[in-house]
Computed example of a mutant assay.
Amino acid sequence: MNSQILVLEKETTSIDTTPLILLHGLFGSLSNWQKVESEFSAHRKVLVPELPVYDRSLRSSKLDKLVTFLEQYIERQDLDKVVLVGNSLGGHLAQLYTLRHPGKVKKLVLVGSSGLYENSFGGTFPRVKDFSYIRERVAYTFFKKEHATDVLVQKVFQTLQIPAKASSIITLARAAQTENMAEYLSHIKIPVLLLWGVQDEITPIEVAHHFHRLLPNATLRLINECGHVPMVEQPEQFNQYLRVFLEG
């Protein structure tokens, strides 16, 4: 009887409860993580901070301000170790934080991450008044174009009509394209999961393979019929791969 109790206690305490921090991209919303949050919040703390991508001060300090924000956020939450899950620009931020604080990140998940190459708004972005162009760029994010709803396109368009917000977005988009991480990735020794949509046109799968070659301890999982935000387009497959990685 006693040995059975000990076995049960051992199995119970083996569940990993390291908090998850989910980091959205430049135009990502907190709702993008809804199905991930609901899937994993039963056994661990899941946090979805809203990144200050419209902060006017970002225009001078670029990505550093976002790293500082994440440092302060994690400190306020009084977290010892975390798992960072970052999509697009959020993945870039996760890499920078991990390099600065390697002892605080247990595992890292990069989802269509910038840091090596990104075909985003940064290059031809001045066409902010062109509604059809904005619609095209929003649709470019998805394999399933029905995700580029009128509501989403209108929201992005309206955001870009505010000069201060448009300026901050342009600065961050260009920083994500120019601040290349290639020479630093070998210093990230922790386990890394690369989750990528096969049809991602913003960070194509060649970028995922490049990350895979440069990171010492990386696992690559590709999701078919999926673009730049797999947690939105293929949430079941996304969660399955993430669960295996977290429990491994």
Rank of each mutant, 00 (worst) to 15 (best):
Q77S: 14
F238P: 13
D64A: 05
S38P: 00
F238L: 10
V192Y: 07
E11F: 03
L70D: 05
N239P: 10
K165F: 11
A175S: 03
Y97N: 08
R243N: 08
N87C: 04
F27T: 12
V36K: 01
I162F: 10
K104I: 07
V128A: 00
E179T: 05
K106Q: 08
K165P: 08
E75A: 14
G90P: 06
D80L: 09
S113T: 12
L84Q: 08
T124P: 07
L152N: 13
R100W: 01
L195H: 14
D78S: 11
K35F: 01
D16G: 06
A218W: 11
L47P: 02
R174I: 02
E11L: 10
R100C: 08
S61A: 03
L194W: 12
L8I: 10
H43M: 13
R59Y: 04
F40H: 04
I188L: 13
V105M: 05
A176W: 03
I205H: 11
E118K: 02
E146D: 08
L116R: 06
R174E: 03
D80N: 14
A139K: 10
Q199V: 05
P230M: 00
K145L: 03
T203G: 08
N180I: 03
I170K: 12
L172Y: 00
L220A: 11
Y241N: 13
H43L: 15
Y184N: 09
I21Y: 11
M181F: 00
S3G: 07
Q4A: 13
F69V: 00
Q72N: 15
K189N: 13
T178G: 07
I134V: 15
T124L: 12
M1T: 08
V232C: 02
E118H: 02
V232E: 05
K155Y: 09
V151W: 13
P52W: 02
R56V: 14
L20A: 02
I15N: 02
P230S: 00
L51N: 01
A94S: 01
S113Q: 15
V83R: 04
G25F: 00
P230G: 01
Q161E: 02
H228L: 05
K129F: 12
I188K: 10
G115Y: 06
V85C: 06
K189C: 10
A208C: 13
Q234I: 04
V156K: 01
Q234Y: 08
G90M: 05
L215S: 10
N224S: 09
L22K: 12
V82S: 09
A182K: 10
L222E: 15
L222Q: 15
F157H: 00
E201A: 08
I169K: 01
S29L: 14
K129L: 10
T203P: 11
K155C: 02
I134S: 04
T203D: 14
D80G: 11
V198M: 12
K144V: 11
I15M: 06
L246S: 09
L108Y: 00
L63S: 04
H147I: 04
L96Y: 01
Q199N: 13
T149S: 10
Y117C: 01
Q234L: 04
L172I: 00
E247R: 12
S61C: 07
V229C: 07
Q158D: 13
S31E: 15
I170T: 10
S57R: 07
F125R: 00
V105P: 15
V244T: 07
N119A: 01
G248A: 11
H101S: 09
N180M: 06
S186C: 10
G86C: 09
F40N: 04
Q199G: 04
V192S: 09
G123V: 11
K145E: 13
E233G: 02
